[in-house]
Amino acid sequence: MNIFRLVGDMSHLLAIIILLMKMWKSRSVAGISGKSQILFAIVFTTRYLDLFTSFVSIYNTSMKVFFIGTSYVTVYFIYQHFKPTYDSNHDTFRVEFLIVPVGGLAFLVNHEFSLLEILWTFSIYLESVAILPQLFMVSKTGEAESITSHYLFALGSYRALYLLNWIYRYYFEGFFDLIAVVAGCVQTILYCDFFYLYITKVLKGKKISLPA
């Protein structure tokens, strides 16, 4: 565990807590893409099946359980508990355009042709694009609340920090996982436009609003 990895994990944890707090305190899921959150629930479920087959550490297990659990709570909030506030008219990204190609790719390009390994690969690929429905929603409505922006910034930072972690691990531990690195690069690149808006607007006290 190096500092990049730890701060990355904490950033991921923070993103989820920010999102849950936003929903709970405002009693609303306005501006949040339910589709992205369903994709994240699929990502965590398919990636952490190794909870049943291998034990790494208490830290590892508790984070996995937390990520899976909170992803389902989030989906429940959006589609049940705070459903009247869910803006489905603006959450129109076609997720089958992500799931089908990503599933095919996981089947073709993986480290080992076994069920758990293919599901892990699927999860890594899917995570890299899972935020697209949310970014699509922000661009469609032309705005994002500050709290949603903080959530997106923390979530995007997590994988960017993992990139630094992988560079560190490559040099100091000889560890290198091409699938994770390529997907991590794609994931981070997708956030670049948002990062720019966040730094130039949100940090100066303005909310993100795009020209119509």
Binding site: N165, F175, D177
Partner: peptide
């Protein structure tokens, strides 16, 4: 480097 069987990352 090799891809590891046990994945310690999240």
């Amino acid at each position: 480097g090799e891809h590891e069987e046990t994945k310690d990352e999240l």
